[in-house]
C-alpha cells in the first residue's frame, strides 16, 4: 500500500511537471500567426511511456500477488487460533466462539497476540465486516459463499468496527466494538460469560423481563438466539453499537443510553427488528427498571 502510494505520487509529480511546463511555455502569444510544426508523433517517446509504466506495474504486481495469497490463507483450523463465527443481521453483529461455547453481540472480545480466525456469514442481506484499524474488510454472504479470514493484534484497546456494505436503512449505524484484552482477561471473560444468568432481583420485573425480552434476547443460559445476546451488557462500550457509553469520546452513562434505546428503538435505528417495549405493554417504570438492571449487569474480566 505504501509502495503503491509512493509510485503513484511519483507519477503525479512527473505528469504535473510536464503539464505545467507545457502550459507556460507554449501559450499562444499576441500576433503569433505562423502555423506550428505538425508533428505526427515520436516512436521513441511512445516506447518510453509504454515501457516505463509497464515496469512500474510489474513492480507493484509482485508484492500485490504475494499479499493476496498470504491474505487468502485459511487459518481457521490452525492450532492456537481463536475461532469466531460472525453472523451479521440487520443491523447488529453476532459473535459466536465455538471453541468456548460462548455467544455475544455487538462487542467482540479478543485476546492479544493470538490469531483470530473468522468465519463470516449473514442471516439476511449482504453486510461487510470491517475493523479499519486492524484489518481489511470481508463481505458476509449467505450460506454457500461463506468467507473466512483472520487478523491479530498485540495492542490492547477498543477498536471501532463497521458494516461496509449497504444493507438497508440503518446501514450507517451498524457499528460494533472490538475490545482486545490480555489472554488472561479473555479467559476470565469466557468464564464470566458462561456463568448462570443473573436476573432482576425484583421478582415481578424478572417475570416481565423473561416474558417480554427473553423470547428473543438471551442472558447467560436463558433466553433465545433471535436478537443480540445481552449477557454483561452493562460493561460494554456501547449500547446497540452506536450509543457510546462513558469512557468513549462523547459517551453517556450506560443507563441513559439503554433508556434512549428502550424508549424508542426505531428512533435510534430506523428499520431494526426490535418491537418497541411500550408496544409490548411495558410501562415507563418497567423500562426504567430493566434499563437499571441491564446497566448493572457487568462482567468482571
Amino acid at each position: 500500500m505504501k509502495l503503491s502510494i509512493t509510485i503513484m505520487v511519483a507519477v503525479l509529480v512527473v505528469v504535473f511537471a510536464i503539464g505545467v511546463y507545457v502550459l507556460i511555455k507554449f501559450r499562444r502569444k499576441k500576433g503569433q500567426t505562423e502555423i506550428p510544426e505538425q508533428v505526427e508523433g515520436n516512436f521513441k517517446l511512445e516506447i518510453i511511456w509504454t515501457v516505463i509504466p509497464l515496469i512500474l506495474v510489474f513492480i507493484l504486481a509482485v508484492p500485490t500477488v504475494q499479499q493476496i495469497f498470504a491474505f487468502g490463507d485459511d487459518h481457521y483450523n490452525e492450532k492456537g487460533s481463536v475461532q469466531v463465527k460472525v453472523t451479521s443481521h440487520q443491523y447488529w453483529w453476532e459473535f459466536e466462539y465455538p471453541q468456548y461455547g460462548v455467544n455475544t453481540a455487538q462487542e467482540l472480545i479478543i485476546p492479544t497476540g493470538k490469531n483470530i480466525a473468522f468465519e463470516l456469514k449473514t442471516a439476511d442481506v449482504l453486510h461487510s465486516f470491517w475493523v479499519p484499524s486492524l484489518s481489511g474488510k470481508m463481505d458476509t454472504n449467505p450460506d454457500g459463499t461463506i468467507n473466512r479470514f483472520s487478523f491479530s493484534t498485540d495492542k490492547e484497546g477498543v477498536y471501532r468496527g463497521k458494516c461496509a456494505e449497504l444493507c438497508g436503512a440503518s446501514h450507517a449505524l451498524m457499528e460494533f466494538k472490538v475490545k482486545a484484552v490480555s489472554p488472561d482477561s479473555f479467559d476470565k471473560w469466557v468464564t464470566a460469560m458462561k456463568a448462570p444468568a443473573v436476573l432482576p432481583k425484583d421478582q415481578a420485573l424478572a417475570e416481565t423481563f423473561k416474558n417480554s425480552c427473553l423470547s428473543c434476547h438471551a442472558v447467560g443460559d436463558q433466553g433465545g438466539p433471535v436478537a443480540p445476546n445481552l449477557t454483561g451488557i452493562g460493561s460494554r462500550e456501547s449500547v446497540a453499537g452506536i450509543l457510546l457509553n462513558e469512557g468513549q469520546d462523547g459517551g453517556k452513562p450506560v443507563k441513559e443510553n439503554l433508556k434512549t434505546w428502550l424508549e424508542d428503538p426505531q428512533a435510534v435505528k430506523q428499520g431494526n427488528k426490535m418491537p418497541a417495549p411500550k408496544d409490548l405493554g411495558l410501562t415507563d417504570e418497567q423500562i426504567d427498571g430493566i434499563a437499571d438492571y441491564l446497566a448493572n449487569y457487568k462482567l468482571e474480566y
Binding site: 500500500m1 503503491s4 502510494i5 503513484m8 505520487v9 507519477v11 503525479l12 505528469v15 504535473f16 506495474v57 507493484l60 500485490t64 499479499q67 493476496i68 491474505f71 461487510s128 479499519p132 484489518s135 481489511g136 474488510k137 470481508m138 461496509a164 456494505e165
Partner: peptide, 21 residues
C-alpha cells in the same frame, strides 16, 4: 490522472480490502 492513480491503488487487492466501499 489523479482518478487514474487512485484507480491503480484500488487495483491492488490487499490495499482494496481497506479502500473498498
Amino acid at each position: 490522472v489523479m482518478g487514474g492513480v487512485t484507480g491503480v491503488m484500488l487495483a491492488s487487492a490487499p490495499a482494496d480490502y481497506q479502500f473498498h466501499d
